[in-house]
Simulated scan of single mutants.
Amino acid sequence: MFHNPNSYRTMPLGIVVRRTPGVTRWAAYAWRAAAILPGARDADWVELRREGEAVEFHAATLTLELHGSDTEAYAHGLAARVPSVYVVMRQPEDGERPLDMVLVTASPYEAQDYCDNGEDIVEKVPMTTGLVAWVQDFVDAFHKEEEFVKRQRDKTRVDLKQDGIGDPRVAKPADIYASPRLKRERLI
């Protein structure tokens, strides 16, 4: 399917991460993506506010990219009860920061791919009203419904002859289920 080369938009999104005290002795803190800041400037774990032991940080600013080829996924996400973006975070290898901010996406399909690898933390964060409108405008401009075409079955009868019978490596029918170890012992 041809996609318009202009069907690409970006927006910087600040990622707000909330740190709360851990609930087990093995985790000092619990971290979660709490909010987004559309159009935010670059940041590197800037403290935004404190409420007792809970602290919110502007952890990073990532670029939200919309691609014309992914409009079906965006439309699916917008149809959810709470339209959201997905923030992908990862435990850092160097230990300089509490978490590395990897990606922000409006595609629930792409977020699912990151969930499947088992190494990343994927947080669902509700979109702001303005961001919902921005993504919806993009989908309205570039989404093309693809007509479902049912595959037609061949008329060829494949059940009339047996293909694949008679492997040349099998000398006699008794060898079909014989253990390979027993075959070697007979050769010795």
Rank of each mutant, 00 (worst) to 15 (best):
P38E: 05
L187C: 12
V88I: 09
G77W: 00
F138K: 00
D163K: 03
P5F: 01
H143S: 03
M127T: 00
K124Y: 11
D137G: 04
V149W: 10
K183F: 12
E146R: 01
T128D: 15
A28K: 11
D167P: 08
E119K: 01
A111W: 00
A80R: 11
T24H: 10
A79S: 10
I188A: 15
I176H: 14
E47C: 06
E119N: 07
D120T: 02
T61L: 03
V125W: 05
A79H: 05
F138S: 00
L187D: 13
R9P: 09
T156I: 15
A75E: 11
D159C: 06
K183A: 10
S107T: 01
S84N: 05
V46G: 06
T129C: 14
Q162I: 13
S69C: 13
E93N: 13
D42Q: 07
P126M: 03
H76Q: 13
T24P: 12
A80H: 12
V104L: 07
P92N: 04
F138Y: 02
R169W: 10
V82F: 07
P98A: 11
T61Q: 06
Y177E: 13
N4H: 06
K172A: 15
R97C: 10
N6I: 01
E65V: 06
V135M: 03
V135C: 09
A141E: 14
V170Q: 13
D70H: 07
K161F: 11
V82T: 11
D140I: 02
A30I: 12
D70Q: 09
D113C: 07
S84Y: 00
W31S: 04
T105L: 05
P180C: 07
L13H: 00
M127R: 00
F2R: 07
G164T: 06
Y29V: 06
N4F: 03
H58K: 08
H67F: 14
G68Q: 01
G118K: 02
K172N: 15
I121H: 04
R184Q: 14
A40M: 08
R49N: 09
D94T: 04
S69T: 14
F138V: 00
E72C: 10
D100I: 00
D163I: 05
P126H: 03
P21S: 12
E145S: 12
V85C: 06
L66D: 04
H67L: 15
I15W: 00
D140T: 08
A178H: 05
G77D: 05
E123R: 01
S69H: 12
G52D: 07
R90C: 11
A178F: 05
E146K: 01
A33N: 00
V122L: 03
A54L: 02
H3M: 09
T105M: 05
R9N: 13
H67R: 11
E65M: 05
R49H: 08
L78W: 04
A43Q: 06
G39N: 07
V170W: 10
D167Q: 10
S84G: 03
E93I: 02
D167E: 12
D154L: 11
V135P: 06
V23N: 12
H67A: 13
E145P: 09
